[in-house]
Structure formats: structure tokens, C-alpha cells
Simulated assay, not measured.
Amino acid sequence: MPQDSRSIYGGQAVIEGVMFAGKHVNVTAVRRKNDEIVFYEVPRTSQRWVQRLKKIPLVRGVVGIIESSAKGSQHLNFSMEAYAEDEAGDQQDQADVKQAKPVKEEKKSGGWSLSMLVGVAVAGVLSFIFGKLIFTAAPAAIEELLFAGVFVNKVGHNLLEGLIKIILLLAYLYFISLTPIIKRLFQYHGAEHKVISAYEAGEELTVRKVQKYSRLHYRCGSSFIVFTVIVGVFVYSLPIFTWDTIWERIYIRILLLPFVLGLSYEVLRWTNALRDVPVLRYLGYPGLWLQLLTTKEPRDEQVAVSIASFNRMREIDGQMK
């Protein structure tokens, strides 16, 4: 096993590519329509106070989520921009064939300004917060309106609220997975997991060898989503958190959201640490089951992009030590 094989890396799928986060740099590799693989590299820089917060249990999870949302949105937008350029190019080529007229070539933008990066990061964080608030408040409101008098005990209401969250989540993931672009995104998600698993096993990163590994991984963000639902049921069921109206119920959920997110992150770390322990490894299975929806088996060319991104990230990381 390689000396540094215990290093923990994470990543995310983007449109027609994969982003990997290293110790010093985040790298995205995207395959263009002409089969060229292009890279987007952003050094990882954080303020000292942010680094200190990321060492505090419960707090580090929330800080990490916000930071990942900000930086991940930049890489996702890079991939979307590349995809849009390819699609626009295809449409223009088709128009040229039909009209047989010369087209004036326009100069493409070669980079992103600091203001653009900050804007994308802020938009990513705001969209995450808004989405999480909706996912927290809507199931509570639905359960309260439809089943207000069914249970005397609050625990029953909380369990039903959790069930509604799971149903909404599964339905949302299933229907978006039917679209071609999201299906390919989920394939790249699977490719990302395969590369990380192969690396952690000390395997040589070739397409043939990486493809042998599972597309599911304990440390995935999909697992985190499941744990927020499960942890939320336990936290909301504590006797000190009671409500009399639907507005009080929603208010409590929103107020406790940072704590639920932070605790869920700690549970995710815990289940990942115990994944090789008999019996206890099953604690992470709910997250793995959800990944059956959020990942798909990747093609060889998609795994190749994931490997290229990972190798490029490690190469730059090594240069920045």
C-alpha cells in the first residue's frame, strides 16, 4: 500500500467531468465534445479562523458544507460553461450546413475574473441554504397539515415527517435521473467513487482496474443527506423541543438546522471510521442505498476523465508541498 494511501480525498461530479479536492488545490477535468480533456484548477485557500473552526466538532461540518458549496459551485459552473459552448458549437455547425454561409468567429473568454468567482460562490452558498430550508420546512408543514391529530406523542409526528422527507427525496432523485444530462452526471459520480476507492485500496489507477471497484462509497454526500433526516428525527424528538402550532414547528426546525447538519457530519465521519468493523459497518448502509439512485455505472471514458482529474490534483498537490 502506498505510503500516503491513507490521505482522505473528496470530490464531486460536474457536467461531463469530475472535480477532486486536494490538500492545496481543487481540480476539475471535463471532456469536451472533441474528446479533449480540459482542466480547471483553483488553489485551496482559507482564512486562519476558518481553519480553526474546521477543527471544532459539530461546527466543522457546517463550515465544511458552506465552503464546499461555494467552491463546488465554481467548478460546476466551469463545466456548464464548457458544455454550453459545445452545444452552441453543434447548433452553429448545423446552421452552417443548412445555410451554407460563413460565420464570424468570436473570441471566447479565456478566464474568470475575481468578481465572477465570488459571485458564483455566493450564489452556490445561497442556493444550498435556500434548498435546505425548503427541504426542512416543507415536510414538517405537510405532516402538520395532513396528520395533525393522528399521534398524541410528538415522536410519531417526527417519524412521519422523516418518512415524508425520504419519499420526497427519493421521488426527486428518481425523476431527475430520467433526464439524459443528469444520468450522465450520476455516471460521473460513480466514476469519482470508483477512483477514490481504488486509490484507498492502493490500486494502480488504470481504467480497467478502477472499473472493478464499487460505485458506492461511505463518505459520499448522499449518505450525509440521509443522516440529516435520521439525526433530525432524534433531535426533534427530544422533550425540550415541543410545539403547539405549525409555525412553531417550522421555526424549531430552522433554528436547529445548523446543529442537525453539524451532528450529521460527525455521524458520517463515525460510520466511515467503522466501515471495516463487523456489524457496525451496517450503520452506513442507508447512505449506500441512496447512492443506488445518485450514482450510475460509468463508462470507460468517464472513468478515464475521473482518473485524469485525480492524477492532476495529486500532481499539483505534490508541487505545492
Rank of each mutant, 00 (worst) to 15 (best):
L170K: 10
L170C: 11
A171Y: 06
A171W: 05
L173N: 14
L173S: 07
Y174C: 13
Y174T: 14
Y174N: 11
S177A: 13
S177H: 00
L178D: 13
L178S: 12
L178A: 15
T179P: 03
I182W: 12
R184L: 08
L185W: 03
F186T: 07
F186K: 03
H189G: 13
H189W: 05
H189Q: 11
G190S: 07
G190A: 13
A191V: 00
A191L: 08
E192S: 08
H193T: 04
K194D: 09
V195G: 12
V195H: 00
I196S: 11
S197K: 05
Y199V: 04
Y199K: 04
E200T: 10
A201Q: 06
G202M: 08
E203F: 03
E204Q: 06
L205Y: 01
T206E: 15
V207K: 02
K209W: 02
K209H: 14
K209G: 00
K209V: 06
V210F: 01
V210N: 10
V210P: 01
Q211A: 13
K212A: 03
Y213R: 06
Y213T: 09
Y213P: 04
R215A: 07
L216P: 03
H217M: 11
Y218F: 02
R219T: 06
C220A: 06
G221L: 14
S222L: 03
F224V: 01
I225M: 14
I225C: 08
I225S: 12
V226E: 15
V226R: 02
F227E: 07
T228Q: 05
V229W: 01
I230N: 07
I230W: 00
V231K: 00
V231Y: 01
V235T: 08
Y236I: 13
S237P: 03
S237V: 02
I240D: 05
I240P: 02
I240W: 11
F241A: 10
T242N: 08
D244A: 04
T245I: 09
T245L: 09
T245D: 11
W247L: 15
W247Y: 15
W247M: 10
W247E: 13
E248I: 02
I250D: 09
I250E: 15
I250Y: 03
I250H: 01
R253D: 12
L255P: 02
P258D: 03
V260T: 01
L263V: 13
L263H: 09
S264C: 09
S264I: 01
S264N: 10
Y265I: 00
E266R: 03
V267S: 00
V267L: 09
L268V: 08
R269H: 04
R269F: 09
W270S: 14
W270Y: 06
N272Q: 09
N272H: 04
A273W: 02
A273R: 10
A273H: 10
L274N: 13
R275Y: 14
D276G: 03
V277Q: 11
V277I: 15
V277Y: 03
P278R: 05
P278K: 11
L280P: 08
R281Q: 15
R281M: 06
R281H: 09
G284P: 01
P286A: 09
P286F: 15
L288Y: 08
L288P: 05
L288F: 02
W289A: 13
Q291K: 09
Q291V: 06
